[in-house]
Design a protein around this nucleic acid. Structure first.
Lengths: 190, 190
DNA sequence: AGGCTAACAGACAGGTCTGTCTACTGCGCC
DNA sequence: GGCGCAGTAGACAGACCTGTCTGTTAGCCT
């Protein structure tokens, strides 16, 4: 299995899909394009991903890792205080907005073009739930009276900031989100 | 022009497109489906809307009227006080979440599947700007020190609430948004 | 009556999409 | 050498999509 650089084909496909799917939406990119750009044979793609939907799901998993990872890293960088972490995680949003080619929330964008109830849809709901559960835990440790509410409010802000990114990656948006977060955390924790 | 009920064909097409496009995304609905469901000939559709893109733009205009109208109505219902109106407009979000078939923000969903820089994209940016300008005016009349910031924060909440609706129309989401709005308005206006 | 207009009905062309299939290549291992 | 495996290359089927074109129908106005 080491004939070519470790897992080469599969990874090349997934990397290419990640880039193209995020830029144009999964529906806006044909399998042929993914094949051409990743320099892979069609049979190889369908060997690793039996259908395009499987590729899209793998893409979403990759996005989940990246985004959730960025959130936790930003929170970690804000120090050990859960309260500061709740605000600090918004730096992940600021960073995302600054990044070249920023195009909003991959999950929301993908869910928008997938029928309700599809696997893609379910995966997106799952992702959002995982993130919200993590924020809820932070809120609880920060001593919020209603951690579920605070988490809901903060993830709402995150989603808003992410969603708006489809239009323009204005960093003012992310900054406004962070200031909102600060205000909400202050209001909730006194 | 009154051979059939006023503007019948055009309106039937637009109504059908509105329903189908919102439910499945413009890309997920073929022109043939719109034709079949609206009981119209293909030539008639292409007479009123030279291309599918034109139909999509007309759809967005219809959405704009409906949503912006709902926002203003909700604000009006909150009374004459601009401060209360800033919070009251979130009732439009609550109402939208409750509605059967709620599927998030039509603009964001559509923009997600359209290439950056396309007419559809531009129309969406325009819509968001108009709404934000209106909110900014409200914030200014409410006496906010930084009306642009407050408006940005509140529209962020609106977008977050709308965007999240692609996943589930949980009214808890809209309620959380409204409570956030209250907190932000209180923080900004003392 | 005759002409105009809006609409209906549906075939058709040309392109794109997903997914399958056949044939070939190069490498490691027994 | 011979076998298997992973990958390459690309033709192909079948569906679907946009947009065009031809022909027909029915009401309104003069």
């Amino acid at each position: 299995m080491t004939r070519t650089p470790a897992g080469s084909a599969r990874e090349r496909i997934l990397d290419t899909a990640f880039r193209l799917f995020y830029a144009h939406g999964p529906r806006g990119v044909g399998v042929d394009t993914v094949i051409a750009e990743s320099g892979v044979a069609k049979a190889t793609l369908y060997k690793h991903f039996p259908s395009k939907d499987d590729l899209v799901l793998a893409y979403l998993d990759k996005v989940d890792q990246a985004w959730f990872g960025a959130l936790r890293a930003a929170a970690r960088d804000a120090g050990d205080n859960p309260r500061e972490q709740l605000v600090g995680m918004f730096d992940a949003l600021v960073g995302a907005c600054r990044r070249e080619g920023y195009h909003g929330c991959a999950f929301i964008n993908t869910a928008a073009e997938s029928p309700t109830g599809s696997p893609v849809h379910a995966r997106t709901v799952e992702h959002k739930n995982v993130v919200r559960a993590w924020v809820t835990d932070l809120a609880r440790r920060a001593g919020a009276a209603e951690p579920e509410l605070l988490a809901r409010q903060l993830t709402l802000l995150l989603d808003g900031g992410l969603a708006g990114g489809v239009l323009d990656g204005d960093p003012a948006l992310a900054e406004a989100a962070k200031r909102s977060a600060r205000a909400l955390v202050d209001a909730a924790l006194g």
